[in-house]
């Protein structure tokens, strides 16, 4: 309960700061979408890095908790990616005049989104939790290993990027830095909260299926032989 209250407080401060931030002279009010879009992008990449990390640790240690960590991270990463892919084009339409551009960073992120949707589908199509965990771990690691290659490939194919460069403290106007920073903090907090809850659900599901399997063996002892 305390965690949930802290989280709501964090998000409320972020929302207030974003509301209160000055309106950009050139882009107008639509610029405020970036206070949501950029933290979503951070959450997306955090999810995908955690998926690969969890997968690698699962293959190394064989502990199913790492697999739950990887799966939960992938699900949250995909959720954040969907929100980022919705908020980005709305901002782009208002600023660039078009919904989408086959720009370097956009394309790499879109491909990464497809990789992790495929990751989740692979898990749901694979029977046996241990096998699904192994396959998904290999795929998750391959997905993250290819990010630099995708960057390089799309750079030579698409040319120069029109996406804004990484926003540093100096590149933001007066009063815009705090909503951004608070957005990052709030998004990492939301990510951590969802991760813990989702891992707990995963643990309970695993326990339930173990109990069911055990009850089935007790009811039909010949089936276990």
């Amino acid at each position: 309960m305390t965690t949930a209250l802290l989280l709501v407080g964090c998000v409320a401060i972020w929302a207030f700061l974003a509301w209160d931030a000055p309106i950009d002279r050139y882009q107008g009010v639509i610029q405020k979408i970036l206070y949501v879009h950029v933290p979503m992008a951070i959450g997306t990449y955090l999810g995908f890095v955690c998926t690969a990390l969890g997968g690698a640790l699962y293959l190394w240690k064989g502990d199913e908790r790492w697999d739950r960590f990887a799966l939960s991270s992938a699900e949250i990463g995909v959720l954040f990616a969907v929100l980022m892919l919705i908020s980005g084009p709305i901002w782009a339409k208002g600023t660039w005049g078009k919904w989408w551009s086959w720009d370097l960073r956009l394309t790499v992120t879109l491909l990464l989104f497809f990789v992790y949707v495929a990751y989740l589908l692979l898990r749901s199509f694979t029977e046996g939790s241990e096998r699904a965990a192994r396959f998904a771990a290999v795929y998750g690691i391959a997905g993250i290993a290819l990010i630099p290659l995708n960057y390089f490939a799309i750079k030579i194919a698409a040319g120069r990027s029109i996406h804004p460069e990484n926003l540093g403290g100096d590149s933001l106007g007066a009063g815009m830095r705090w909503p951004f920073l608070m957005g990052m903090v709030a998004m990492v907090a939301v990510f951590a909260f969802l991760l813990v809850r989702r891992m707990e659900i995963g643990r309970l599901r695993a326990e339930q299926s173990r109990r069911r399997a055990l009850a089935g063996r007790e009811e039909a002892p010949w089936a276990s032989s």
Binding site: L111, L112, F114, V115, V117, A118, L121, L122, F125, T126, E127, R131, F135, V138, Y139, A142, G143, L146, L149, N150, F152, A153, I154, I156, A157
Partner: peptide, 28 residues
């Protein structure tokens, strides 16, 4: 991997296509 899944014909393109991009772009 796909051969051990329930939807092998469907999952293979979904797994392969997003990761094939660097090779395809280089080759094109």
């Amino acid at each position: 991997m796909a051969v051990r899944t329930t939807n092998r014909e469907m999952i293979l393109p979904l797994l392969m296509l997003p990761l094939m991009v660097p090779v395809v772009l280089g080759a094109v």
